[in-house]
Simulated scan of single mutants.
Amino acid sequence: MNRQAPEEKEMAGLYLEEFVVGHVFQHTLRKTVTESDNMLFSVMTLNPQPLHIDFDFAARSEWGKPLVNSLFTLGLMIGISVNDITVGTTVANLGMKETVFPHPVFHGDTVRVETTVISVRESR
């Protein structure tokens, strides 16, 4: 049997000259966060914050249930964006000037991400 090598898949990421200021990426990947995601991330990063891992403690908080670790949320957001923006074309993350967490994320919430290009410049 004569098999041909599969065609090389083009990478989804963009090169510098392909970024357009003002463009908004509506990333199609989504993730519903589970209790296991939150617990494993908190344990792996040695974060003992009871708001993330102690259901009894969190039940007595203003939210009444555990909050998903915000660094997990940030990492998830970056991961979701990689396929559309940097996979195969860039060896570093794009810059972030400000990171805010305006609302908590809870077990069972689905995270969706959009990215807005606010400026384009070559690395210094």
Results as ranks from 00 to 15, higher is better:
residue 56 D to I: 11
residue 43 V to M: 14
residue 76 L to R: 00
residue 35 E to D: 15
residue 9 K to S: 06
residue 56 D to Y: 11
residue 97 K to M: 14
residue 4 Q to I: 11
residue 95 G to L: 15
residue 59 A to L: 11
residue 84 D to G: 07
residue 36 S to Q: 14
residue 19 F to D: 06
residue 121 R to Y: 15
residue 115 T to S: 15
residue 108 G to M: 08
residue 11 M to P: 03
residue 120 V to C: 11
residue 65 K to V: 05
residue 16 L to R: 12
residue 105 V to A: 02
residue 97 K to I: 09
residue 83 N to T: 04
residue 87 V to E: 15
residue 71 L to A: 05
residue 116 T to R: 14
residue 38 N to A: 10
residue 23 H to T: 12
residue 36 S to C: 09
residue 124 R to G: 11
residue 102 P to F: 02
residue 46 L to H: 04
residue 30 R to P: 04
residue 33 V to H: 05
residue 42 S to E: 11
residue 6 P to I: 00
residue 123 S to T: 08
residue 21 V to I: 13
residue 44 M to Q: 10
residue 113 V to Q: 03
residue 15 Y to T: 14
residue 24 V to A: 01
residue 117 V to C: 13
residue 104 P to S: 04
residue 41 F to A: 06
residue 89 T to P: 12
residue 38 N to S: 06
residue 60 R to F: 13
residue 92 A to H: 06
residue 107 H to G: 00
residue 15 Y to V: 14
residue 17 E to I: 04
residue 8 E to G: 00
residue 112 R to A: 13
residue 106 F to W: 02
residue 41 F to C: 07
residue 25 F to A: 08
residue 48 P to A: 09
residue 63 W to H: 06
residue 9 K to P: 09
residue 112 R to L: 09
residue 34 T to F: 14
residue 44 M to F: 11
residue 121 R to G: 08
residue 80 I to D: 01
residue 96 M to N: 05
residue 60 R to S: 14
residue 11 M to C: 09
residue 101 F to W: 03
residue 81 S to P: 05
residue 39 M to F: 13
residue 93 N to G: 08
residue 66 P to W: 09
residue 38 N to F: 15
residue 24 V to S: 00
residue 58 A to F: 08
residue 18 E to I: 10
residue 65 K to L: 04
residue 7 E to D: 07
residue 103 H to V: 03
residue 16 L to H: 14
residue 91 V to D: 14
residue 1 M to N: 11
residue 94 L to M: 13
residue 112 R to F: 11
residue 34 T to M: 14
residue 5 A to G: 00
residue 50 P to C: 09
residue 62 E to F: 01
residue 13 G to T: 07
residue 81 S to V: 03
residue 109 D to M: 11
residue 111 V to Y: 02
residue 26 Q to H: 12
residue 24 V to R: 04
residue 94 L to T: 06
residue 64 G to T: 03
residue 98 E to G: 04
residue 25 F to V: 07
residue 42 S to H: 01
residue 4 Q to Y: 09
residue 117 V to P: 05
residue 8 E to H: 04
residue 66 P to R: 13
residue 118 I to W: 09
residue 79 G to S: 08
residue 78 I to D: 03
residue 34 T to R: 11
residue 111 V to A: 01
residue 36 S to Y: 10
residue 76 L to F: 05
residue 95 G to A: 13
